[in-house]
Design a protein around this nucleic acid. Structure first.
Lengths: 243, 243
DNA sequence: TTGCTCCTCACGTCACGTGAGGTGGC
DNA sequence: TTGCTCCTCACGTCACGTGAGGTGGC
């Protein structure tokens, strides 16, 4: 596709070529080995001698390879006609645009690395956790709930929207909020604390009101399941009252 | 820095973990091997069992590794305190911004891949070549000059600004332009053509006018040097007339 | 002789990919 | 029994990096 240069013009050594085009000497040799860049003539000392066309070819190779086009494809592209090259360049341009989008995404994610949940939970769940923080819940309980949500999303993502809706509804109910905070506080009570029996009563009452309203949500029952209660002796007692 | 999860919550297999976080199973094992992600407990079958903290850790690893942070550094970053992490994230953010700039640059360069000189010659030289095209020069001569410029920039970049200025000045002179076009046409003349002697006379006359004006430029002499004339028998004759 | 650039093997690196051969629960 | 997921080696890949040992002109 490119015409050969006349050949009567002075030539460059591999070091000069590399410096001018901004690649390493080793990279040039590598391109020769893969047949991406044609081997040039040698001088009397066996040194490679490059002409202007080599400069042009190498800069083309570099331009294509820099954004990550595999060298085998670079070779194909430059061997192919300029029409095919033009088509591929259009493709590569879209690819680069995509990569720029991706990096911009990654910058956003980086910013979230120190902030906690945002990165690994859906936004609605993060909102629920934030809402509970505002209600004065302990970080310990929030973290347990966060872990439960992570497992829920990982194991049964299809059920998550329903749970999210149920939890949001519950948090709109002042009775639930009081109850839920009480449960949080109860975590550190002595398991023989008499208030646990009253709390169990309140929970049962709320749950039956809720069930009669037709709402389907695993909320309290979900949190109070056999996996979670193990983290607090008081909660274990509470679960026994409810059973 | 992150607190351990309670451990009474159900766990994920390596496949579930990989799918949820969007990495391959092999990548997870690789992270274990390098110590970037802690090895979890095994179940009765020897299968790895992951908790919510592993999900969090893995997403952090992925977030850092995706834009190209070496895994050894990822390990250091996550082992270090969150202050150090924050500092490094600021650095990484600048790095990502730089990469986005770079990709944008590469998109521009890609567009120039089919257009010729723009990619491998400084803008002023490209302007000179374009100007000569407008004056009606043959592509053959332009290409020879292009190759001379490439070699000039590669071998003695410090002299290029002077040459560029000289050439621009010459192209502002209508006498030079006529002469230069004549030289272009003469390339394909028969070496015995009597007009060559007249042309040599005109060149000498122009050069002496130019020298007396105090301008320092290698222009015509540069083009008509021993390296280039070899490409045309008529030019060789012309060079002998001038010698 | 010393320093510099060039030469050709050839092994190393980084982040996994990809079988090879085998186990364990449904 | 078949199919699926998991397991541990261990070699392969891609684009070079990095010595190892040697040559040639100033």
């Amino acid at each position: 596709m490119a015409t050969r240069s006349v050949g009567v013009i002075p030539t460059l050594t591999i070091g000069q070529l590399a410096e001018y085009t901004g690649v390493t000497i080793r990279a040039v040799r590598h391109y020769h080995q893969l047949g991406v860049l044609a081997e040039p003539e040698r001088d009397a000392s066996g040194y490679r001698r490059y002409d202007a066309q080599a400069v042009i070819d190498l800069i083309r190779i570099k331009t294509l390879a820099a954004p990550g086009v595999p060298l085998v494809r670079v070779r194909e592209l430059l061997d192919a006609g300029s029409l095919e090259l033009r088509v591929s360049i259009a493709e590569l341009d879209r690819e680069l645009a995509r990569r720029i989008e991706e990096l911009t995404e990654q910058r956003r994610r980086m910013a979230d690395l120190t902030a906690d949940e945002r990165l690994y939970l859906p936004a609605e769940v993060v909102a629920i956790l934030d809402r509970e923080r505002e209600l004065g819940h302990s970080e310990r309980m929030i973290q347990i709930e966060r872990d439960v949500w992570i497992m829920a999303v990982a194991l049964t993502p299809s059920l998550v929207p329903e749970w999210v809706a149920g939890k949001q509804q519950a948090l709109d109910d002042p009775d639930f909020c009081r109850l839920y905070l009480a449960i949080d506080r109860a975590m550190e009570w002595d398991p023989r604390d008499p208030r646990l029996a009253d709390l169990a009563e309140d929970i049962r009452a709320w749950e039956s009101r809720r069930a009669s309203s037709g709402a389907t949500e695993p909320g309290l029952a979900g949190l109070m399941n056999s996996h979670v209660v193990g983290s607090s002796p008081a909660w274990q007692r509470l679960a026994r009252y409810l059973a």
